[in-house]
Design a protein around this nucleic acid. Structure first.
Lengths: 342, 342
DNA sequence: GTGAAAGCGCTAACAG
DNA sequence: CTGTTAGCGCTTTCAC
């Protein structure tokens, strides 16, 4: 407010303005230790009057503590991660920890860079999507000496703690449900991205479970980039033009599934009898469609919450129990209107 | 890698391991000043070997420079802001600046808190959504002495720079287009949130332009929370049950518009003749619908890019030209298949 | 309850 | 090209 030279204000300015030692000012501003009400009041007044904002950089350097939690995820436009973030925020809001997000675009090199950048701010913990990281990244995580929670996926070996679901099993379960529904000629539509390990694992689990029943995927279609809804339409049209005898389409995510569903609905196709459909994620948008798309909940919110809880707990307890938590959540199938029940 | 005591490594460790002074190690690690290739190599090797990650906290304190740009936005699940972020990231990636996101949930108190928190890290600049802030927030922004860019909206008085569109005018233009399309009985469907100032301004501009033509909104419906697609369906059903004679529905965002569109399409309503529809934002999902919803581009990516450019430029040039930029972008109408052209 | 001194790990500024 | 000296603005620790 009153800052004529426009020089960042320091504790000393507040000290001088209030006539209280820097040390006591610091105590007041952090609510630490006993300070008389009179002094406290004078300090608070001076601080507000000046418009003082503490310098966390100096504070962090002196105290060797940073109330930041690095959250490293592939993307924010995926619909999945905003919800994970919500879970993380919900939990961290009750602590004095703050999430800081870094985006990787599914690129290992970028993940490495972002991780390096974030670790250089010495956060109190790291929440990072996936179990697949470059050797350098894994080394940094281990060397950091702070709690690390890998999220989303449990199919692999974590550096420290892990919270997620088994995408391989998710793919298997969907395959089993589809077979039980009596479908035989199954098409798969998914993302081309070879770096989306979770989509890949679902695909693997899916084909594997089909194989166990002697069924093979009849056709498949992959995409990359663009609006998922549009791609869903286009791929559906393409795969059915090529293989008109398909009786089920399994989409690797709900958005392309929704696009396909709208397309088929337009065409007047009898769903789920002529063709059944399923997606993945359990997005709430599915309920706004003409038919509710079958899907599978990915436990996004819960994963975020659990991960944050692990970090928060470790930060509190500090030194002791460096026992890693390994939490595997159980996704559930929604049949909706597009997958015949057994 | 080789960090037995698990104590954070320091420059001194690298210095000792390489037999080079701390200062020179620092120079190598920052690519600053001339260092002989031999020394550089020794340092780099030692650093990598130890798995050293520089401490930016100490660096920032010493250099009084922080390569962070605070980005303060209401939400990440809005579809709008991820795209703004993309624009910001694109530009900042070419600099050594890094965006750090803070979320406000459209709450002024939360905005104030987040802003305080971020400013206490002394970022190089602030990009903040909207022009409406608490007095305290505005005071902090002004007192911070760093470049501030308010984004999304140009209807108001910025603290420093601003990049956005006029939402009031956007509402007006849509009203004019609707009238020119020959529609008379117009319904409005939107968010209840009184804190979404941009939606409010669009509504105001909309009604105002209608009024100028002697038309009044025939009915309206507001919602809050829940899946936008679902809400769009429900509100559309509700408003038409109440006012079956409406010939146009203007939705305050594309998602609820899409929900309404799907609902009406299901019902077999003749769009755009029996009823016309329009949304707002120009989301790419619109092209995946049975009909393309009329909408208006909000210039999200461009806003992000421009804002980041302003910050980047100011950080480079430093002291001079503290001349604020005021950039008003021009949104364009998409008629799609749901709004009759004049 | 309050204050003084000594750093936190790095970099600016200068000296060689 | 390399090294030395002083801090950056806070908090820790200990004294009063």
């Amino acid at each position: 407010m009153t800052n004529p030279e426009n020089r960042p204000l320091t504790l000393r300015d507040v000290s001088e303005a209030s006539g209280v030692s820097e040390m006591t000012v610091s105590r007041v501003l952090r609510n630490r230790g006993d300070v008389s009400d009179a002094t406290r009041k004078r300090v608070l007044e001076a601080a507000k009057q000046l418009g003082y904002v503490p310098n966390k950089i100096a504070g962090a350097l002196a105290s060797q503590r940073v109330n930041l939690v690095a959250v490293i995820i592939p993307s924010m436009s995926n619909m999945v991660f905003p919800e994970v973030m919500t879970g993380i925020s919900q939990v961290l809001e009750e602590t004095d920890l703050q999430p800081v997000v870094g985006l990787t675009d599914y690129l290992p090199e970028k993940e490495e860079k972002v991780l390096y950048e974030m670790l250089s701010w010495r956060p109190s913990g790291v929440i990072i999507a996936g179990l697949e990281h470059s050797d350098a990244s894994r080394a940094m995580l281990r060397a950091s000496g702070i709690p690390v929670v890998e999220i989303m996926d449990t199919d692999g070996t974590p550096v420290d703690s892990v919270v997620g679901i088994s995408h391989r099993r998710a793919g298997q379960q969907m395959a089993e449900a589809i077979l039980k529904g009596g479908y035989k000629r199954i098409g798969f539509l998914g993302t081309k991205m070879p770096l989306d390990h979770r989509a890949r694992k679902r695909f693997e689990g899916f084909t594997q479970a089909l194989a166990k029943a002697g069924v093979e995927i009849a056709d498949h279609e992959f995409y990359s980039g663009g609006s998922a809804l549009v791609k869903g339409r286009e791929m559906t049209e393409a795969i059915l033009a090529r293989s008109p005898d398909l009786d089920f389409l399994y989409y690797s995510n709900d958005k392309i599934g929704a696009g396909g569903l709208i397309y088929l609905w337009e065409k007047g196709v009898d769903i789920p009898n002529q063709i059944g459909l399923a997606g993945f994620n359990g997005l709430s948008l599915l309920k706004g469609l003409p038919l509710e798309l079958a899907s599978m909940d990915a436990c996004r919110l819960e994963i975020g919450r659990r991960a944050a809880e692990i970090i928060a707990k470790r930060v509190e307890e500090d030194a002791d129990t460096p026992e890693p938590s390994h939490i595997a959540l159980e996704p559930t199938i929604t049949y909706g209107d597009t997958l015949r029940r057994p």
